[in-house]
Simulated assay, not measured.
Amino acid sequence: MIAERWAVALLRVFLVLLFGVLVVFQVMSLPGQFAHMAQESPDMAHLRWPLTAITVFWVLCVQVVVVSTWRLLTLVKNDQIFSEASLKWVDAIVWAIAAAWVVFVGVFLWVGFNADDPGVPLMLFLMLIGLSVLGLLMVVMRALLRQATTLRDDMESVI
């Protein structure tokens, strides 16, 4: 139990750090990077705003996962993880991953059809497979949580 408390506390510290870094990326780094790209490569300047919007959206999806994970940790701490409330937060994670995946597929297809060299599309394909595995893993974990919640409810009704 002590190890669980330490793990939850440490995970919360890292979630706060991650969220802070994501905000810096969202507000300063990504818009600044694409503005710099537009200045350095005027032929690519038309991609500045679409790339900014897409990457900021992906960061937003990660932020949804971070906040949902925080809420799930609160449920773990309060011994309420096997409840309907936890399913809502897991759903938020699944939908955030799904939204990021759909946009990533669009980027992958656009890059794939416009690439001169297979390196970047192959790297994006590898990332797409990884994101697909993560999303499907979350769907399976949600199903397991649903079963555990049902079993816990059944056990409580018996006792």
Score class of each variant (00 low, 15 high):
residue 13 V to G: 10
residue 13 V to T: 11
residue 14 F to I: 05
residue 15 L to I: 06
residue 24 V to H: 12
residue 24 V to R: 10
residue 28 M to A: 07
residue 29 S to V: 15
residue 30 L to F: 10
residue 30 L to R: 05
residue 31 P to S: 10
residue 31 P to L: 03
residue 32 G to I: 10
residue 32 G to F: 07
residue 32 G to T: 08
residue 34 F to S: 04
residue 35 A to R: 15
residue 35 A to L: 07
residue 36 H to V: 10
residue 36 H to S: 09
residue 37 M to S: 08
residue 37 M to R: 08
residue 38 A to E: 00
residue 39 Q to F: 00
residue 39 Q to R: 15
residue 39 Q to N: 14
residue 39 Q to T: 10
residue 40 E to F: 02
residue 41 S to Y: 09
residue 42 P to D: 00
residue 42 P to W: 04
residue 44 M to Y: 14
residue 45 A to C: 08
residue 46 H to T: 08
residue 47 L to V: 04
residue 47 L to N: 04
residue 48 R to W: 00
residue 49 W to T: 14
residue 50 P to W: 10
residue 52 T to I: 10
residue 54 I to V: 13
residue 55 T to W: 14
residue 56 V to S: 09
residue 56 V to D: 04
residue 57 F to D: 07
residue 58 W to A: 12
residue 59 V to S: 02
residue 59 V to T: 06
residue 59 V to Q: 07
residue 60 L to Y: 13
residue 60 L to S: 12
residue 61 C to L: 04
residue 61 C to R: 10
residue 61 C to E: 00
residue 61 C to N: 00
residue 65 V to L: 11
residue 65 V to Q: 06
residue 66 V to F: 00
residue 67 V to F: 06
residue 67 V to D: 01
residue 68 S to H: 00
residue 69 T to D: 01
residue 70 W to C: 08
residue 71 R to I: 10
residue 71 R to D: 00
residue 72 L to E: 02
residue 72 L to P: 03
residue 74 T to F: 11
residue 74 T to D: 09
residue 75 L to S: 00
residue 75 L to F: 01
residue 76 V to W: 02
residue 78 N to F: 05
residue 79 D to N: 12
residue 79 D to Q: 15
residue 79 D to F: 05
residue 81 I to V: 13
residue 82 F to E: 01
residue 82 F to Y: 14
residue 83 S to E: 03
residue 84 E to A: 15
residue 84 E to V: 12
residue 85 A to R: 15
residue 86 S to P: 01
residue 87 L to S: 07
residue 87 L to H: 07
residue 89 W to K: 03
residue 90 V to S: 11
residue 91 D to I: 07
residue 92 A to Y: 10
residue 92 A to K: 08
residue 92 A to V: 03
residue 95 W to L: 14
residue 95 W to Y: 11
residue 96 A to P: 03
residue 97 I to A: 15
residue 97 I to M: 14
residue 97 I to H: 14
residue 97 I to D: 11
residue 99 A to E: 06
residue 100 A to E: 02
residue 101 W to A: 13
residue 102 V to R: 06
residue 102 V to S: 08
residue 102 V to Q: 07
residue 103 V to L: 10
residue 104 F to S: 05
residue 104 F to T: 01
residue 105 V to L: 15
residue 105 V to S: 06
residue 106 G to Q: 09
residue 108 F to T: 13
residue 109 L to I: 15
residue 109 L to N: 02
residue 110 W to R: 01
residue 111 V to G: 01
residue 113 F to T: 12
residue 113 F to L: 14
residue 114 N to G: 04
residue 115 A to Y: 01
residue 115 A to V: 01
residue 116 D to I: 03
residue 117 D to V: 09
residue 117 D to Q: 05
residue 117 D to Y: 05
residue 118 P to D: 04
residue 118 P to H: 03
residue 119 G to M: 08
residue 119 G to T: 06
residue 120 V to W: 13
residue 122 L to A: 12
residue 122 L to W: 10
residue 123 M to C: 13
residue 125 F to T: 07
residue 127 M to F: 12
residue 128 L to S: 05
residue 128 L to R: 12
residue 129 I to Y: 09
residue 130 G to C: 14
residue 131 L to I: 13
residue 131 L to H: 08
residue 131 L to D: 05
